[in-house]
Each structure stands twice: as C-alpha cells, then as structure tokens.
C-alpha cells in the first residue's frame, strides 16, 4: 500500500509543484511528515541537507531519498526501498513529461494568453508563501533544541542559523561549504 501512496503523493507534487525545488519541499513535508508520518521532521531536515549537498535537482533528490527511507522505515527490506525510490522519482517526473510534451506541441502560443497570465498572478505570490511555510514548519525543537531543556543547543542552533542565513544572503557563500562548516561546528560543540 505504501508504494501506491508514494506514487500518488509524488505524482501530485509533480503536477502542482510550481516554483521549483524549495516550494516542493513544503508539499513533500505536508504529505510525508504530517499526513503519512513516513519520516520525522528531523529526518526530513537531514534529507534536505543531503539533497542540497549532492548534485542534481532538489526535487529529484528528495523524491529518491524519501522513497527509499519511507519504505525502509515502514519495515521493508532495502530492495523494496530501492523500488520505493524508483516509484517516487518516476511519479514526480511523469506529470512534467506529459505536460511538457503537450506544451511543446502548442509551444509558446498561449504563453502570454491573458487567462494564463491572470492565473500566475495568483500562483507566483502563493509559491513564496509555500517556501516561507517550509521554513516555519522546520523551526521545531527537533531541529533547534528547546530553550528550557537544552539551552546550550538552542542558542547555538540560533547562531548557526544566523551564520548560514547571512553567509548565503549577504556573502553568497557556497551552500555546500556552509553545510559542511555547520556540520563541523556541530561535531565539536554539541
């Protein structure tokens, strides 16, 4: 059954995942963590870290990773996990394949059609909200620690958050380098 739900979940994400990998993350989070409980928030965040550190589009990376981990978390053997990641990745790409081929046929003819433009007037700002939601949802004790039970980890986590944010936003530091630096900091300080 989990294979069927994996397929449906990622097909839906592939069909409605406007705005690239980051906005897909909040959809993946909603389905995989909140709705089905296939992974914990912590596991999900680790998955995002791994997809950012490795080459390849984030959407493909997360589908592959979630497909494997969900199936193995559910108690299936590793080969079933491989099948799960194949299922999730194919389901993610399938809607694009169909949609892009249709669009290629009528290529660009309707790009500036007023109906299409007005739809995107609503969708584009909403995508920004989707990414913001992904950030808010990931601000949990599992990712940051809590100020009561573990103040050292909590404040240190906030500093690492600030460091990564400024490093990327202001100094345009390479995200892989940032992740590695914070990993080393965690290894030493936690």
């Amino acid at each position: 059954m989990i294979f069927f739900f994996l397929f449906v979940t990622f097909f839906q994400i592939g069909l409605l995942g406007f705005g690239g990998g980051y906005s897909m993350l909040s959809m993946i989070q909603a389905e995989v963590v909140t709705r089905h409980g296939w992974m914990t928030t912590g596991e999900f965040t680790d998955m995002v870290a791994l997809s950012q550190m490795t080459p390849g589009p984030i959407g493909i990376n997360s589908a592959t990773y979630v497909g494997y981990t969900s199936v193995v978390n559910a108690g299936y053997p590793a080969w079933a996990g491989v099948l799960g990641s194949l299922m999730a990745t194919c389901a993610l790409v399938l809607p694009s394949l169909v949609l892009m081929i249709i669009i290629s046929k009528f290529l660009l003819r309707y790009k500036s059609h007023p109906v299409v433009e007005s739809i995107f007037m609503g969708v584009r700002p909403a995508v920004v909200g989707l990414i913001a939601a992904a950030v808010l949802i990931l601000c949990t004790p599992e990712n940051f620690g809590s100020p009561d039970s573990d103040p050292w980890r909590f404040w240190l986590s906030l500093m690492l958050f600030g460091f990564a944010f400024v490093g990327q936003q202001v100094y345009k530091m390479n995200p892989i380098k940032l992740i590695c630096l914070c990993g080393v900091a965690g290894l030493i300080l936690f």
């Binding site: 990712n143 940051f144 958050f161 914070c182």
Partner: peptide, 9 residues
C-alpha cells in the same frame, strides 16, 4: 549542527 543551517538556506 547542519539542521539550523538547512532551515536558513
């Protein structure tokens, strides 16, 4: 250590 950085990214 990586988790907070991911949220920032």
């Amino acid at each position: 250590g990586i988790r907070p950085a991911v949220v920032a990214l």
